[in-house]
Simulated scan of single mutants.
Amino acid sequence: MSDFNRIKQLYLTFSHEMREHFDEKKPILRESIEAIRLRYWYEGLKQRTSLHTAYELERHFEKESFQRNSNGTIRHYRSKWSRYEQSIHTPKSKTLKRVELLAPGSTREIDHPLWRILKLTDPGEIDAEMILRTLSFDVQEIIFVCSFSGLSSYSNRKPITQRVLDQLERRASLDCLTCLICLLLEASSQKRAVLSTKIALTVHNVILMMGIELYARKVALPLLDILIERILPLGVMPHLKMWMISSDYIHASAHLNLMVYQTKRGNKRVLSWPQRAKLMYRLIHGYMGLDVQYAMAPQFELNDKVGDIPEELINKFNKASSLRNWAWDSIVEGRSEPMPPAELFV
């Protein structure tokens, strides 16, 4: 559950960290998938337990690791959770099972199929069928259709239509993101350019929704860097190239999540993630005004390595840029303008 003030505080913290990073000119460090998945698990446990330190988490999940004196005071403890906090040591299965008893579903987070997909170096290596069948039931229900043969049942893949992509987007979760990445890798390896572009747009929308929550888990920047470098370009048209960076996605995500609480359905309420995701879907797709739709559209730059770009495509690019600038001006200034000025459509 989340409210306006929580999202606002996350965004303020992010903005402060970005200013410090810029002022101190800190180097950008690449993080491994192993480090990202461990931190996602560790920070998730902090959120669920409302505990703040490695010491508190170790006492909560592994009391037996604390050796005590005869008077009951703590004499020694292993301090292994501090290594989890630093993402330098992965918990063994015994620890994961113990944690799972108190935090059901936590093992799934550290062993999620997403981490396995992101370790692939060649899109052609992916076994889409196998990955998709490991996802949550609600996602499989979207992707597969069940049929019967006598007393037996079996399931086959549905065609990937816009309706299927919309259903995944409305559910925006780690499993939905994994599904979309899997479908994009598959479509790209099959040279299905039009489908790849549609899936990539849906991936873009989902990470816009999830960005601020990924930041709350302290994995947003390194994870988004990977998606921007290796996944999203698979669905970019040849005359364009990625312009947005990971911090752009978190910035947009914070605004999108905050706008949820300014709608009639979200005003002054504490909302669950599924409730927020459905409202963000409506915002992104213009159901509550075209200003948000244009602001949240992916931002590209022209690819100067493809030779001459047709004038029609250049005009379309310039028009999209103008509409996006108008939309962000409206949002930043606090104006609600459902329709852009007529001259922007000329």
Rank of each mutant, 00 (worst) to 15 (best):
G266V: 03
F14Q: 06
F137V: 11
S93F: 15
R230K: 14
W328Y: 03
L168R: 01
K92S: 12
V203Y: 06
N5A: 04
V164C: 09
R78A: 12
I314S: 10
I160N: 01
F144V: 05
S330G: 08
S336K: 12
T53D: 06
L302H: 04
L51D: 05
R282G: 00
R324K: 12
F22N: 15
H76M: 08
L151V: 07
I250G: 02
E64Y: 12
G211H: 07
V346T: 11
Y287H: 13
L183W: 03
I143R: 01
Q275R: 11
L118G: 04
L256W: 05
H60S: 10
S106M: 08
V206K: 03
S253G: 13
A187E: 02
I284S: 09
W273L: 12
I181C: 06
K305Y: 13
V332F: 11
V260Y: 00
R335K: 14
L120Y: 04
W243D: 13
H112V: 09
P341I: 02
L174S: 09
A295T: 03
M242W: 10
D308Q: 14
M1Y: 06
E24Y: 15
S87A: 15
P238K: 10
V332N: 10
S87F: 11
D3W: 00
E58H: 04
G150Q: 04
E125K: 11
L227A: 08
I131A: 04
N156F: 03
P91D: 12
G124S: 12
K191A: 10
E311T: 14
I143S: 00
L290N: 14
A35I: 05
G211N: 06
T90E: 13
E343Q: 14
L290F: 11
Q275G: 07
Q67F: 11
Q162T: 13
I160P: 05
